[in-house]
Amino acid sequence: MARSTGEDAQALFHSLRSAYAATPKNLKIIDLYVAFAVFTALIQVAYMAMVGSFPFNSFLSGILSCTGTAVLAVCLRIQVNKENKEFKDLPPERAYADFVLCNLVLHLVIMNFLG
């Protein structure tokens, strides 16, 4: 049955890809943005694993900036997504404004903690 699991996986993958291709462009932009943040975080963790956590505050700052960015982006995606019934009444501009504000605060904190 290995062949069928392999085929099933491929079929699943194809269906996921086609489903994803249907998402609107702005959401794809946000997804790309999140992936960017996550990758940066992963690279930093790999670095820390190699050399140790010497300027720990800098490490945390770097990681936090990535994770914070990712989290805020995900929140924006949730709020902007038209298929999300919960936030139907929330204008996307409003979500965007919250997003920008939170990011500005985040980056202030990051800069302070970076050392």
Partner: peptide
Amino acid sequence: IPAAYPYYGAAFSMMVGFFLFSFVHLYS
């Protein structure tokens, strides 16, 4: 601290990324 350069780089790249994204998100 030289050992923290990657972290500096990460923070700044996040900032630049945010700026770019904020621009792109509104007008794309």
